[in-house]
């Protein structure tokens, strides 16, 4: 009987392929990051990154080792129950609808956003950076939260695909989009393009803080 499947209706092979592909990519990315990061992980950006990571998890869970065997498709294994009670996206999007993208939002505390990804910890690719505690009132962090809310408004609906895409983008000092690119593909062109589109449609953004030392951002979009 199909009762349990009617509202979700995942295509298993598609799911398996997406998970395997992005799992493999994650592993590759993490490996590259870990190696490359050895020499320079204590560089300038530590405060910024730390805001999101400080509350998130103390120890990085190792990436799943499977899914790499010669690119084979492995059966979909759901690491996180989909019925988790915390509905983080709803919480945040409640704050965002109705606001024009160019209207500066009140400073959002970083905490809710950070909490939002807690249950998904095994999903995240990058290992945790060093964790300075002095992150509270960083204007760039608040701005990043604002960007996130603006981008999230353009999330596509009803896709029923699974995958993770990371988009990198650069802003001008006025908040215009200078460049976007795919930092990490999901292996599925549709998901990749949807994530890029979200960022491009959300632009132009509010002007970034004047003292921001970097106008480069990355954001991961996880399709469930």
């Amino acid at each position: 009987m199909a009762f349990a499947d009617t509202r979700t209706g995942w295509s298993l092979p598609g799911l398996a392929a997406a998970i395997a592909v992005h799992g493999a990519l994650l592993v590759a990315a993490v490996t590259a990051f870990a190696v490359a990061g050895q020499g320079e992980r204590h560089h300038r950006s530590r405060e910024v990154v730390a805001i999101f990571e400080a509350a998130e998890r103390p120890v990085p869970p190792p990436p799943p080792p499977e899914g790499r065997k010669a690119g084979r498709v492995v059966p979909p294994v759901r690491p996180v129950p989909r019925s988790s009670d915390a509905q983080p996206p709803v919480v945040v999007s409640d704050l965002s609808p109705g606001r024009a993208a160019s209207t500066p939002l009140p400073l959002l505390p970083a905490a809710p956003a950070a909490r939002a990804i807690q249950p998904e910890a095994p999903h995240s690719a990058p290992p945790p950076p060093p964790q300075p505690v002095t992150a509270k009132a960083d204007p760039l962090a608040a701005y990043a939260a604002q960007l996130r809310a603006a981008i999230m408004r353009w999330k596509p609906r009803g896709l029923r695909k699974e995958g993770e895409v990371t988009v990198a983008f650069t802003l001008t000092p006025t908040g215009q989009l200078n460049a976007t690119r795919l930092a990490q593909s999901s292996g599925d062109v549709q998901l990749d393009r949807m994530a890029l589109r979200m960022v491009r449609q959300a632009a132009p953004f509010a002007a970034p803080p004047k003292d921001a030392d970097s106008l480069d951002f990355t954001i991961a979009v996880r399709f469930h």
Partner: peptide, 14 residues
């Protein structure tokens, strides 16, 4: 490039 990582967005279809 010191890109600032923005918290991931989850797109649910459920």
């Amino acid at each position: 490039q010191d890109a600032t990582r923005i918290d991931p967005i989850d797109v649910e279809s459920e």
